[in-house]
Amino acid sequence: MANLKELATRPELLSGGHRLCAGCGAGIIARQVMMAAADKPVVVTNATGCLEVSTTIYPFSAWKTSWFHSAFENAAASCSGIEAAYKALKRTGKVDKDIRFIAFGGDGGTYDIGLQSLSGAMERRHRMLYVCYNNEAYMNTGIQRSSSTPLGAYTTTAPNGKVKKGKEQVRKNLTEILVAHNIPYVAQTAIGYWNDLITKVQKALDTAGPTFINVIQPCRLGWGYSPEDTVTLGRLAVETCLWPVYEVVNGKYKINVKPKEKKPIIEYLKLQSRFKHLFKPENESVITEIQRNIDEHWAWLHLMEEDTNK
């Protein structure tokens, strides 16, 4: 359990003055991750993306810790190189500190173009925490679809029109792909659950191996809502069971947030302009399908929890 009073005494590792949009969820995630990490020296690697460009526009960097970026598809690979260097330099005595390694990537850099390097790094068991700030599309280039974009959502490369209803495919389940890597710690969480997120980051950083946290991140521009609702929407994703908050520790599933009452998905969809077209009578079937997928996945997750904790 994290404690805000205690966290507030730690150094702030992300300064103001970055150029993320007002109300950007990526800023919230990055700050909370760094709050959790601030008790030890940490080296951050960033994939190309909103977080990277907005926080390090030369000659201004918002990062107060060692921070590195090289390209889009390789955050996990570069981080594995840094971690390898750490092992080597620790052996030769050039480094004596206990250092942690965090890589940040958006869903583009993680689900899609960076999936191979992420898979490689996880399989090689580098000790690092990879955090996906998952805003469900390529927001940095202007809201193009990704394999994380949900069914029915409008994006600029899968728009709705006279014959199309937005994205026609369901998103892939990256969290489970990471679970399939048999790494010691995999988790999902959302903006709106600061304690869960920070506790998970701490757990991950304490794990001597590769760890992965997938954080759903409302994006006001790409999702189409007003900025003060970023946290509200993160919470709604969880309360509708669209984005379960859970963790898989050495193969054992635990659902960390079980809403007393599962809210209907409409409550979440109606706040976002990317789903506006789904409310036309001819597109009702898409909403029904989204709801059905949620129900099935939620039931499946409970089975996994039961099954792996027997």
Partner: peptide
């Protein structure tokens, strides 16, 4: 050798890892 050998999954990652390692302070 005292080298940390990283058997990466592609050449892109090979150079990426070397870049990370070199930036970290290692001879890569």
């Amino acid at each position: 050798v005292a080298t940390e050998f990283v058997a990466v999954e592609s050449e892109h990652s090979a150079l990426s890892a070397c870049i990370g390692a070199s930036a970290a302070g290692a001879r890569a």
